[in-house]
Simulated scan of single mutants.
Amino acid sequence: MHSDSLVIIPTFNEIENIEAIIRAVFSLKKQFHVLIVDDNSPDGTAFKVKTLQNEFSEELHLTERTEKSGLGTAYIHGFKWALEHDYEYIFEMDADFSHNPQDLPRLYHACKKNDADVAVGSRYSRGVNVVNWPLNRILLSYGASFYVKFITGMKVDDPTAGFICYKRKVIETIALNRIQFVGYAFQIEMKYRAYIAKFNIVEVPIIFKDREKGKSKMSGSIIQEAVWGVFSMKLKSIFKKDNF
């Protein structure tokens, strides 16, 4: 049975979470399909997905890449797959339960019923809704969000968020092959390109819970890309409007 909605979940060494997150999505009343984009995880993540495909043959999809190539390229791969397979609502979600699958219908509803083109699962639209993060990481993330809003002019309280629903037309409009960033800044660039294209970006408040199993992929170089990248992205959008 076809669904109008595809949840893209990039994975690298998520064997501890992958079955539980897939089952959580498929237990929802609203039907979502799932695409796992696995970067050749040595822990057997892709093999576990393949075994689950015996149970969820129509709903669960897997693409395997040969190496760890970054979050941004994983999502772009997933976006192109989603367009080829005629999904109308395309979601980004982490595998580690920091994004609650129970919030997927709320993001869907914002786009389907409330006229959002992009629905962002927002940690900061109503104060700071983050659980299990140390204070320094909260300050870093919240500070990065303030910085991005200041530089870009976007009225988005959580521009670095990675829990998102895009309408198909947004993904079709954004020039995916021109996306510059592969790490943390990828999330900012996607929202900024949607903002420049005058799409309606709406924030849906969520509670973000830090992963309990597996290892975080965050690093200093990813944050550095975000800080310098946002500034250069803004300059390019001003001086190269025709081909940004």
Rank of each mutant, 00 (worst) to 15 (best):
K113Y: 08
N114H: 15
D115G: 06
A116R: 00
D117V: 02
G121M: 02
S122W: 00
R123I: 10
R123W: 09
Y124D: 04
S125H: 15
R126D: 11
G127E: 09
V131L: 05
V131T: 07
L135D: 11
R137N: 04
R137V: 09
L139Y: 12
L140A: 10
S141I: 06
Y142G: 05
K149W: 11
F150Y: 14
I151H: 13
T152N: 14
G153T: 11
V156G: 00
D157M: 13
D158S: 13
T160I: 13
T160L: 14
A161W: 00
A161D: 03
A161I: 05
F163D: 00
C165L: 04
Y166H: 02
Y166E: 01
R168D: 03
K169Y: 09
I171L: 12
E172L: 06
A175C: 05
R178L: 07
Y184A: 03
A185V: 06
Q187C: 13
I188H: 15
A194M: 10
K198G: 08
K198W: 04
N200H: 12
N200F: 07
N200I: 07
I201N: 04
I201K: 01
E203G: 10
I206V: 10
K215V: 08
S216P: 03
S216K: 03
K217Q: 07
K217N: 09
M218T: 14
M218S: 14
G220K: 15
S221Y: 03
Q224M: 10
V227G: 07
V227N: 05
G229E: 04
G229P: 01
V230M: 08
F231N: 07
S237M: 09
S237C: 14
